[in-house]
Amino acid sequence: MSFFLPVLLRNLFQGPSTEAFPFAEAYTPAAMRARVSFNPDSCALCRVCARMCPAGAIQLEKRPDGLEFILWHNACVFCGLCVHYCDSEALHQTDDWHLSHLQAEKYAMVEKAVVKFQKCSTCGKQKMPAPLPLMAKLYPGLAADEIERLRAMCPQCRKAESAPVQGETP
């Protein structure tokens, strides 16, 4: 009997240990791995996410002016490989786990965005986008406006600019 009294007292003061969800907000850990979000502005179209995805949830499809990033949340297993390997920080894992839905919405559970090709500021050819987070990693310590200038170039022009052939002026 004596062992029971502390338990009873504790329960009286602490209240029930059952979470009130769905009638109130549920506790979500800060490091919760749930819905993956995509930012098309920092995607470099390297396709490493589609290659790493074990469930094949990510596809990049050709469009006339770029590539369309398609992530189906109903196939994503929250492994975080795409986020880990995304060097340009376009993919992030949010803590939003409210993914249950009716069958009618099954194929609408998609993260979709078209990442457009760009034009090189120097030669005018079509090029893949060079997002800021990736370029900041590639050129550490470079001034912000200089990085912006290099970003607008295609890889060939950028190479000629940053590592000119001896004897040539950039």
């Binding site: 969800f21 749930a34 994503c76 786990w97 409210h98 993914l99 249950s100 009716l102 559970m109």
Partner: peptide, 15 residues
């Protein structure tokens, strides 16, 4: 009803 997740957390199942 679909509850995606691998696995879904208990709160998601309740939802």
């Amino acid at each position: 009803v679909n509850i995606p997740g691998c696995p879904p957390r208990p709160q998601a199942i309740i939802e």
